[in-house]
Design a protein around this nucleic acid. Structure first.
Lengths: 123, 123
DNA sequence: TTAAGTGCAAAATCTTTGCAAATGT
DNA sequence: ACATTTGCAAAGATTTTGCACTTAA
């Protein structure tokens, strides 16, 4: 499946790059001047994740947050923690790598690690 | 707000204790012989979390999973990782404690850490 | 007795899907 | 040309809420 370079994709990738945090669907929609359909936004974001241009974290609220800050060369570099501020709502990627030894016979595939609390600006 | 000891609460707590894994709402409902209303189950589970008798993890699927295995004396002992098997769907509490140094000025409140993959039985 | 808990129905969220029309290559 | 992408509408899935009725203490 060959990917196309559409205006919508460019805009959304731009927004993800400018934000130095992970964004939920509605945060992205809020930053769009012209409106792109909800379904289209989700589809674009999911394609970004498939292609390794972005990654997804599930918030403590069960919502999906997308970020493209920690990918290098189209591949997600390492598995890291995320931090969600309960006050301002910002979701950031932390540098801390997840290092954990799983029990014998367990194989890890995906990581979803999110800590909630107060960020520096909100303390 | 004084809590009461109802049959529904007892049944659900029983189920959580017997399962050596975290259960989602529908998993719990499936294990109930007599049916308890959906809303009631959610309310009971949320009360358990408020009271420290259970804790909640958000799965990579955005669903809520509840467990009461790691609490001692009504208090959640430590923050730990969870593991969800993508094959059999089981969500387990891992012993590994989450130890992470947050950036200056950040305060942690809640932890949600889940690794997905294959468990021992499914490899 | 009376505050807490329950059931039912309905609402609120968030996300995905089907399909026809539009568009990139 | 033709497969990919989009918009619209509708469906799906999960969780919460309002309200009257029931029940534990």
């Amino acid at each position: 499946m060959k990917r196309r370079n559409t205006p919508s994709k460019r805009k959304i990738l731009e927004i993800l790059k400018e934000a130095n945090s992970a964004l939920s669907h509605d945060m992205i929609q809020a930053r769009l001047d012209a409106s792109i359909d909800r379904a289209t936004i989700y589809r674009i974001l999911n394609r970004f994740c498939e292609d390794g241009q972005a990654h997804k974290v599930i918030g403590g609220d069960g919502k999906q947050y997308f970020a493209c800050g920690m990918e290098r060369g189209g591949k997600h570099q390492h598995h890291h923690f995320h931090f969600k501020c309960l006050s301002c709502g910002k979701v950031e990627c932390l540098e801390n790598e997840i290092q954990i030894e799983l029990p014998e016979g367990y194989v890890a595939e995906k990581y979803n690690a999110l800590i909630s609390g107060r960020c520096k600006s909100c303390t």
